[in-house]
């Protein structure tokens, strides 16, 4: 268990180091997703399975998709096909694939050993988290919902103006 924790920590730190030193944004994203998965494994080892699931589903699943969308919006053009071909070379995905394979092997090992929650060991199960979340922290949940609404309105406002401006430019290009 302790060794699994150290391996996951080293994978997380290596992947994060590659994130801040990568020259290409997509490489950085791949390594950052590996880093998030490593942190999820650390959560699982610490006896926080709910946090681990949220890390994979929301962080690596939803938030990173936003990054990928914006990255693809910012890089249109005829060179896209050539770039796609370039990304399919093993040099691009070998590093993240090796790190992710280490994490996958670790998960298989933990599951096979049946020690993901060691008997008698500490584990904060999702039911407790839910009870706390909608008990003493109810006000915090409401504040989070207001924050999410504010973010939604703000993003909509910003992108609405941007879309209108782009439409005007397109019309101006067409008219003359």
């Amino acid at each position: 268990m302790t060794n699994a924790f150290y391996i996951a920590s080293i994978v997380a730190l290596l992947a994060t180091l590659r994130v801040i030193t990568a020259t290409h944004a997509v490489h950085a994203l791949l390594y950052f997703i590996v880093s998030l998965l490593a942190v999820a494994v650390i959560f699982l080892l610490m006896g926080a399975p709910f946090a681990a699931a949220l890390e994979v589903i929301i962080y690596a699943g939803a938030i990173m998709v936003l990054f990928v969308f914006v990255m693809m919006m910012l890089n249109p053009g005829p060179r896209a096909v050539q770039r796609e071909r370039h990304w399919l070379t093993p040099r691009t995905w070998a590093g993240p694939a090796v790190l992710a394979a280490i994490l996958a092997a670790e998960l298989v090992f933990i599951t096979a050993a049946g020690t993901s929650h060691t008997p008698g060991a500490a584990q904060v199960c999702p039911a407790e988290v839910g009870m706390a979340l909608f008990g003493p922290y109810l006000l915090g949940v409401e504040m989070a919902s207001v924050l999410l609404l504010a973010g939604l309105v703000g993003t909509y406002h910003l992108s609405w103006h941007l879309g209108r401006r782009r439409d005007n430019e397109r019309k101006r290009e067409i008219v003359p």
Binding site: L66, V70, V124, E128, V129, L133, G140, G151, G154, L162
Partner: peptide, 27 residues
Amino acid sequence: PDGQVMFVFILAVAAVEVAVGLALVLW
């Protein structure tokens, strides 16, 4: 469980920050 509750809140803050931040990046 308080640590994981705070983690849920941190996730919400991160999601909002990324949404607004990426809209500003497009600007």
